[in-house]
Design a binder for these strands. Structure first.
Length: 506
RNA sequence: GUCCCCAUCGUCUAGUCAGGUCUAGGACACCGGCCUUUCACGCCGAUAACAGGGGUUCGAAUCCCCUUGGGGGCACCA
């Protein structure tokens, strides 16, 4: 029975590096009908918080990595927060002390620190001098009785430790450099490398799958397992995710948390898919996988040994693909949060009433879909349908450089005035009272006919014709197909827009 | 400094374990073209890599050694 765990520290929201480690654990668990466990390593009280834990657990949920055991749902191997497990460790420490596999060390932290610095400055590796390794029992008892504080050290007897790693094979370490490391601090707080080993054993973890920044911790943990007589789990150290500068991905690289990507309008499916492809490959040319397909295809043994640079550009590309593949109704639903978060909505240009007209709103959303890389982009592309920069208060009046260049074309005045004239003519034909109002629309075919007329009168064609009309009406140099855009805007509003552009922007 | 890990296009990778089919394949980005009398989407194409040096071998991206480069650890942090 496979049991794996992800053990994050609740010190912020879930980082993509951790998310990827979690993903590999999750995939491995599911494909083996195993158990996926979340354990919070919250013993660093200064940095850990319950809020962080909550947001992390939400991130896992959003990523659709459902856990079988964890701090919220519990399980048979709890508790699932390290701070709640502290009582479990004492008896093991006592056992080690009784067996002489560990011993109390009365050296002060300051003294050790001094020695370490001295060695360092001489460019020599520090090793504990084992000053307290062989004190006789009476002395020890007496000093403890006198209230002298002490740390507990694990007695290291072997010269080297071999770690068997599923991805890297055997790795050998000399124990010399960390010999007799501390497992319990003077205040009784057990140390990380000691605690993980016990937790993993107590939770019956079969495969420890974690980032390769933990490789050098592993021999210490192996020593703990052996001292306690615990059977070893299997280890698999997966490569790090790097930033553009090839250094370990961290906050200073910008957006690196799952929450960041969620907010920016990345889809869970795309993030999972992209993350799965960092340091793992199906060894075919296929790139798109659903979670279920990943569960089928993923192979822990074929995880690469080298680190991967996180490339947002490729994630965006993948995200755009997922957006385009969605069912219209799902697309509508999943986009709404981002519509409501947009500036247009905040300024009242898009209202709940607009959104509630599901058919029309979906139609509009669909016309801008090809332009999206993330769902957050909708705000930008929806603008032409609901307002125009400069025309409406609260919207930035600045035109992009590209848009300005288009309006500077020699034919642009003729194009805009020509098109304005045609719109007026059409609306007069359609309205008995001769006043263009907001209920008159033209269809794509009519629009094409009008552009032909304007082409003749202005002499502009192609880009000079269509881009000028686009900028004149929308204020943007990119966006949905013109025929679709025009057929969704009332003639009255287009007339207003053109007048504004002619008056203020030419 | 020391220990450990890693090394194919700018980036993600296939090929490496079982050497020849590799004048090194795919994808992102970039550049060019087509489609659309427009941007985007889509399609087509181009540029672009075996870190260096020694071996072993008829033959090395693939095996061995060295160098170089990069990363991570070296705590009474997790």
């Amino acid at each position: 029975m496979v049991r794996v765990r992800i053990a994050p520290s609740p010190t912020g929201s879930l980082h993509v590096g951790n998310a990827r480690t979690a993903l590999f654990n999750y995939l491995f668990a599911r494909q083996n009908q195993g158990t996926f466990i979340i354990r919070m390593e919250d013993t660093d009280e200064a940095r850990s918080s319950r809020e962080s834990e909550t947001s992390m657990l939400q991130d896992f949920q959003w990523m659709k990595m459902d856990s079988d055991e964890g701090p919220l749902q519990g399980g048979n191997f709890g508790p699932y927060r390290q701070t709640e497990r502290l009582g479990l460790y004492n008896k093991y420490t006592q056992l080690l002390l009784n067996n002489n596999k560990a011993y109390p060390c009365f050296c002060s932290a300051e003294h050790i620190q001094e020695q370490r610095e001295q060695k360092r400055s001489n460019n020599q590796p520090y090793r504990y001098d084992r000053a307290c390794a062989n004190l006789d029992a009476d002395t020890v008892a007496k000093r403890i009785e006198q209230g002298e504080s002490y740390a507990v050290r694990l007695r290291t007897t072997q010269e080297h430790v071999v770690v068997h790693d599923i991805i890297r094979g055997d790795i050998q370490f000399e124990t010399d450099s960390f010999r007799d490391f501390i497992i319990v601090r003077p205040d009784g707080m057990p140390v990380y490398n000691y605690v993980v080993a016990m937790d993993d054993h107590l939770m019956e973890i079969t495969h420890v799958i974690r980032g390769d920044d933990h490789i050098s911790n592993t021999p210490k943990q192996v020593l703990v397992y052996e001292a306690l007589g615990f059977p070893l789990p299997k280890f698999a150290h997966i490569p790090m995710i790097l930033g553009k500068d090839q250094a370990k991905l961290s906050k200073r690289h910008g957006d690196t948390t799952v929450a960041n990507f969620k907010e920016k309008g990345f889809l869970q499916e795309a993030l999972i898919n992209y993350l799965a492809l960092l340091s793992w490959s199906p060894k075919t040319e296929r790139e798109f996988f659903t979670m279920d397909e990943l569960i089928q295809e993923f192979k822990l043994e074929s995880v690469s040994k080298s680190a991967a640079v996180f490339d947002v550009e490729k994630l965006k590309w993948m995200n755009g693909n997922y957006i385009r593949q969605m069912e219209p109704n799902e697309y509508y639903k999943r986009t709404l949060d981002f519509v409501r978060a947009s500036e247009l909505f905040a300024n009242g240009h898009i209202s709940e009433k607009d959104i509630a007209d599901e058919e029309r709103f979906t139609k509009i959303l669909l016309t801008v879909r090809d332009n999206l890389e993330t769902l957050m982009d909708v705000g930008q592309y929806l603008q032409p349908f609901f307002t125009m920069p400069g025309l409406t208060k609260g919207i930035n009046a600045e035109l992009s450089t590209e848009a300005k260049e288009i309006l500077e074309l020699p034919t642009s005045k003729d194009v805009l005035e020509g098109f304005l004239g045609e719109l007026k003519r059409v609306s007069n034909e359609n309205n008995a009272d001769g006043n263009p109002d907001s209920d008159t629309y033209i269809d794509a075919q009519t629009y094409k006919g009008l552009t032909k007329i304007v082409q003749k009168s202005s002499g502009a064609k192609g880009k000079a014709l269509f881009m000028t009309i686009r900028v004149g009406i929308s204020g943007e140099h990119k966006g949905p197909d013109m025929a679709e855009l025009v057929s969704l805007l009332s003639v009255g509003s287009m007339i207003d827009r053109l007048r504004y552009t002619i008056a203020n922007r030419l």
